[in-house]
Write a protein that binds this DNA or RNA. Structure first.
Lengths: 118, 118
DNA sequence: TAAAACTTTGCAATACTGTTGCACGTACTC
DNA sequence: GAGTACGTGCAACAGTATTGCAAAGTTTTA
């Protein structure tokens, strides 16, 4: 199961939701995939993205990814097809926060139209 | 009803979820507030923020806000108290997207600890 | 002013995603 | 072969968002 889920994520260049992964199988329970993804996440194999569509999406981490603030990159959500792309070469810019605010994490989702949908 | 909801949002400096607004009333239906907020949103009085907590939050727009890409600002979610602050003086940085991607909108949520929680 | 038209509200029900409890089955260990 | 650990599927539940419908309230119109 873990191998299969991993392969599905590997094949895709985009981030997939639990539901989308489920669709790739004939007869596998949501909960099974859910727990597989959770295992992956606990072991830093994947990262999850909340792109605001209501469904969390998952994508493989790079080999050297530690899922720490330094590794954060931007995600792109296409308003037309709903696909979420990892912009792994675009780090989330560091912001100078107002006095008293400390930085721990960030979520930067850019929305627009992807090349396939123009 | 609209006046009351507006006043609640006006009083708060942070963004409120549907549930939090509901708490401010004694006996008002979620759906009523929901539709009120929707009306506000349709008329560009408020903007909604999905900070990844699972509940969408709402905050008043500035007078001159058009809710267009130029008006986008950063939001800060405190990992301790869960409150979401509008950083209205911090615009979302413009990113040079890869070839073929067009920009329409963005959601930039910074997470950390707010001054009250340190 | 009374009827008609429209708006707002509350209740109930539903959708969707995520999450957990439990039982069964398989595989591994001794 | 008994015992243990793990993975899977089913069913149920949680939380938020959303909609249909009817009753109540408000405005318009003749």
């Amino acid at each position: 199961m873990r191998q299969l889920v991993y392969e599905i994520l590997e094949k895709q260049k985009k981030a997939l939701s639990l539901y989308e992964i489920e669709q790739q199988f004939d007869n596998v329970e949501r909960s099974t995939i859910f727990r597989t993804l959770k295992t992956f996440q606990d072991n830093y194999l994947i990262h999850s993205i909340d792109d605001g569509t209501g469904a969390v999406k998952y994508a493989l981490c790079d080999d050297d990814c530690t899922c720490k603030p330094d590794d954060l990159h931007i995600h792109f959500l296409c308003n037309k097809c709903g696909q979420t792309h990892c912009m792994k070469d675009m780090p989330v810019p560091k912001m100078d926060l107002a006095e008293g605010f400390s930085f721990e994490n960030a979520n930067f989702v850019v929305k627009g139209i992807c090349p396939n949908c123009r």
